[in-house]
Design a protein around this nucleic acid. Structure first.
Length: 209
DNA sequence: CTGGCGATGAACT
DNA sequence: GTTCATCGCCAGT
């Protein structure tokens, strides 16, 4: 199921290419109570300063500095007061970029995940959603910037079973009003862990004043 | 099943 | 003061 760690060179790609590569790969994280691994089945590409939806869009800040760093590192940020989201940095040729991890299937530490999320139902839906994924992996601010290609890191990225191209679906990114014409959300068709909510189309519109 | 909305905090304007 | 790459609850179909 998992083979070896990715190397930094393999991950230094345009975010769209990196997103394809990451589907099927396995992210493993050591928590205080044990290790959990997930096979990534849904991701979104975020480019650099030319992508209005990217944290990079308005330049480098203390929060997003990791995105300007070397590829293969984890970028974790805090959002909506109670959630963390995790990205894998794919900086190449000096261009910042990252891939948001939206959902995965638990492949190791299943019992642990059930204890961490007693409310969740089903087996394939334990890591459905970006903030749920981080809570399942116990990834938060403390893991921001860790090197996923280092075997000694608390969070690591492994090469997984390759996802057949015909199973990869694409669509607009979730929650991004602009750039609906750039289908930079990628998921594995048929996986129960893919977030089904909002059916890819209708997003909440800003309330009219 | 669906859609609305509250909670909650840090970065940014 | 506003935005934000959100989730889970609750009420209505």
């Amino acid at each position: 199921m998992r083979d070896r760690l990715f190397t930094r060179d393999e991950l230094a790609l345009d975010p769209v290419d990196l997103a394809h590569l990451l589907l099927g790969s396995v992210l493993e994280a050591d928590g205080p109570d044990g290790t959990v691994g997930v096979r990534l089945v849904e991701v979104e590409a975020y480019r650099g300063e030319d992508d209005p939806a990217s944290h990079c869009y308005r330049g480098k800040t203390p929060r997003n500095a990791v995105m300007w760093g070397p590829a293969g590192h984890l970028y974790v940020y805090f959002v909506y007061g109670m959630h963390f989201c995790a990205n894998i940095v794919g900086t190449h040729e000096g261009m910042p970029g990252a891939v948001l991890l939206r959902a995965g299937e638990v492949v190791t530490g299943l019992d642990l995940v059930r204890k961490r999320r007693p409310n969740a139902r089903g087996t394939g839906e334990l890591a459905k959603g970006p903030a749920i994924l981080t809570s399942v992996l116990r990834v938060d601010r403390a893991q921001n910037g860790v090197d996923l290609t280092d075997p000694a890191s608390p969070v690591r990225l492994y090469v997984g079973e390759r996802v057949p191209a015909e199973l990869v679906r694409t669509g607009p990114r979730v929650g991004v009003a602009m750039a609906m014409d750039t289908p930079w959300r990628f998921w594995v068709d048929g996986s129960p862990a893919v977030s089904t909510y909002r059916r890819g189309g209708k997003r909440r519109v800003r309330p009219a004043s």
